[in-house]
Amino acid sequence: MTIYNLYIFNSAGSCIYYHEWLRRREAGMSRDEEMKLMYGLIFSLKSFVQKLSPVDCKDGFLNYRTSRYKLNFYETGTGLKLIMNTDVNSTNVREYLQKIYKEVYVEYVVKNPECKLNKEIVSEVFKSKLDKLVRSLPIFNNRVI
């Protein structure tokens, strides 16, 4: 069980936070380009799922799985997007993303007047609280190899 990394995008599509706990492969491009590619992927997946769905969908896209990792997606009503890459067997990641939003983002970014909304999150307290929460999750078991 592992958690690889976490992306937070604002409603305008720019990455306001990125952190990695474990990553064995770089995307082969600059961080900036990678964020744009990731947002493009999520944006297209959302419209793809909406069109392909046989019946009306409510939440739309939830997650996808490849042979090596699973990408989990959660979007709030305000358009904030949280994306977490985990190993393929992890479950309930959506709940954890909701928890991150509720207990860390709202508490330490929205309620912090020093944090400008829609700007990159530089708050140290957010960073440490997030790290603490993620490390306490049952699916977090990163071994350094």
Partner: peptide
Amino acid sequence: QLSPEPHCSGIEVLEADTF
């Protein structure tokens, strides 16, 4: 391409709330 692990395949299963 965006995989955090090397030697990764493409999407195998995609889950939405209706399918």
